[in-house]
């Protein structure tokens, strides 16, 4: 009994907020580290298709991206509406792919090079013609690990 009375009497000091900035800073640093500011602008419109059998791409530094889609409105007057390939932040065609792969490859230690994966981000409405050309080009360049980028879908079709 006596204890309870004592505690009730002590309840006046407020919770110290002195450590609040530290907590917030910790969160801040977490998000700063996690944030990847997207480099370059997207010049083609890409909405990847949905699939269920997805695998995660490990180690972002070992992945290079090839975008295929129709140019966004801003570039349609110059590049038309046919599907185009975007490498890095430039429009390209399939003959530029070997150089693009090589430029990515030299940044990576030799031991890790066999693990390099190409992520194909292709718009769902693009036809297979241009995708096949890219695949042929990748095969000729010896880049055989490929990932068709897709969004997860829960239900079965």
């Amino acid at each position: 009994m006596g204890h309870f009375v004592k505690k009730r009497g002590k309840s006046s000091p407020a919770i110290s907020t002195a450590s609040l900035p530290d907590i917030i800073f910790m969160l801040l640093f977490f998000f700063m580290v996690v944030t990847v500011l997207r480099e370059g602008e997207r010049k083609v419109r890409v909405v990847v298709p949905q699939a269920t059998e997805l695998q995660k791409l490990e180690q972002k530094s070992l992945v290079n991206h090839i975008w295929i889609g129709r140019p966004i409105e801003k570039y349609q007057s110059v590049y038309g509406t046919k599907p185009r390939i975007q490498l890095g932040d430039k429009f390209a065609n399939e003959f530029d792919i070997p150089l693009f792969l090589e430029q990515h490859k030299i940044k990576i230690p030799e031991a890790q090079r066999p693990a390099i994966t190409t992520s194909l981000k292709v718009d769902g409405d693009v036809t297979m013609g241009i995708v096949s050309d890219v695949k042929t080009s990748l095969r000729k360049a010896g880049q055989l690990k490929l990932n068709y980028s897709a969004r997860p879908r829960q239900d079965k079709i």
């Binding site: 997805l54 695998q55 095969r139 490929l146």
Partner: peptide, 15 residues
């Protein structure tokens, strides 16, 4: 944007 890169992994045959 925590966009996790996911997709269907395939292996192409050598040329």
């Amino acid at each position: 944007t925590i966009d996790i890169d996911k997709g269907i992994t395939v292996k192409l045959p050598p040329w």
